[in-house]
Design a protein around this nucleic acid. Sequence first.
DNA 1: GGAATAGTGTCTTTAAGACAATATTTT
DNA 2: AAAATATTGTCTTAAAGACACTATTCC
Lengths: 235, 235
Amino acid sequence: MVCAMQNYDITQFKNPLFTVDSVLFTVVENTLKVLMVKRANDPYARRWGLPGGFVDVDKDDDTDMTARRKLAEKTGLSPRYLEQLQIFSGINRDPRGFSVTSAYSALVAHQSVETHIETVEQAKWISLNELSSLPVAFDHKHIIDIAHKRLQQKALYSMVPVYCCPEQFTVGQLKNVIETIIEKSIQRKSLMRRIESSDMFELVDEKVHSGGRSAQLYKTKKDVSMTHFERNLSV
Amino acid sequence: MVCAMQNYDITQFKNPLFTVDSVLFTVVENTLKVLMVKRANDPYARRWGLPGGFVDVDKDDDTDMTARRKLAEKTGLSPRYLEQLQIFSGINRDPRGFSVTSAYSALVAHQSVETHIETVEQAKWISLNELSSLPVAFDHKHIIDIAHKRLQQKALYSMVPVYCCPEQFTVGQLKNVIETIIEKSIQRKSLMRRIESSDMFELVDEKVHSGGRSAQLYKTKKDVSMTHFERNLSV
DNA sequence: GGAATAGTGTCTTTAAGACAATATTTT
DNA sequence: AAAATATTGTCTTAAAGACACTATTCC
């Protein structure tokens, strides 16, 4: 089985199947949800799976772009946070043979996407709870589990969860998002100290009210990088 | 350019080139070194590069096994620590086209490998210092840099550097390894507290001397998992 | 005023840093 | 005994936890 091909290379021929998949999280009403899409094709046609697909070497400069392109194609949105998680590989994870997926972890504020997604029949936000009793394609349930654990860790030592908040947010909103992610409550005081010491945020000249005293709005400063704290919040 | 092939799939045809490369570190005489191999083939023939190569779908269950197999083939050794770093991908990193490498980070004690490597003409331990002024294949210098930074982080919140120590080690040896990795000195007291509280190690009924008072030997307990501390050592 | 949520003050706790003091071994 | 390295004791420091107290807004 040999075919004429430019720069033919036997190793390339048996190259594993390579895909990119994203675990896109959002927090809505104290629930952590993941964006799932209904698979159109085999394998696992009509099951829920992570949004992703093959690299298009003509369109994508790198796999980050693949992840973003696939999210945009399937949901019309571009997450503010997107980061490599890890690869998952193996001889048995795809019936077509040895396959590798580069999994990404991404966050969006539900406020910024609600309209988009409702209209897409094939995409749905599913809570981690529902997911546990749902058949899911490939090892995607495992990938989501790993992504969740990693996100929980990051929530303890960084401000990453802020990407589940809208551009302007209150301490209360951020506290809620963090608590939803880590499934524990935290001290508001500790969070405020971190907001202050990270120097990542600035006050917005406006307050917002929701049932009690108005809350100060914050937004992320321009071009700041994510602060990593020296200590975790307590478990 | 179509050829008859079982389960032919257009996407698979343009699959990116996928390789696995390892950054294998060791510490010898207060210097952090990386194992480099002289490339036999183009691209970058005769340059130093990371040990790695293509997945062999007939031999490898997953990419971890690819990484181990390649290290064994090129150096005859099997590191006690091997972990995914991240993937590096892009249209320009390999002249043959869009390529993806899954980089691994690995550690060995130099004591356990000295004999092996000396005999292999094509493999060499190179210090990070030497490396900076050496032409290196692909983006491997960048990969090493990222691996180094990640290892430095891990040294601050985990006991991962023990894998650069022999099976039985003293606090002094571990302290040296850590300090070499992070390029800072640490408090012996803090390290001893961590050895104690991690509960990962047990005393060996033996001491070893080196110029002063004999030092207690420790070894890793059976089947312990790596402890992650809640706090970093100070920077 | 009461309920609800936001924000501050401050004392406690935890684990690391600093470093002096003690212990052991070789020369 | 002096030098060198190992180990312990203990006080300080930094940042999180706990939680009471004050502030603001709506009803």
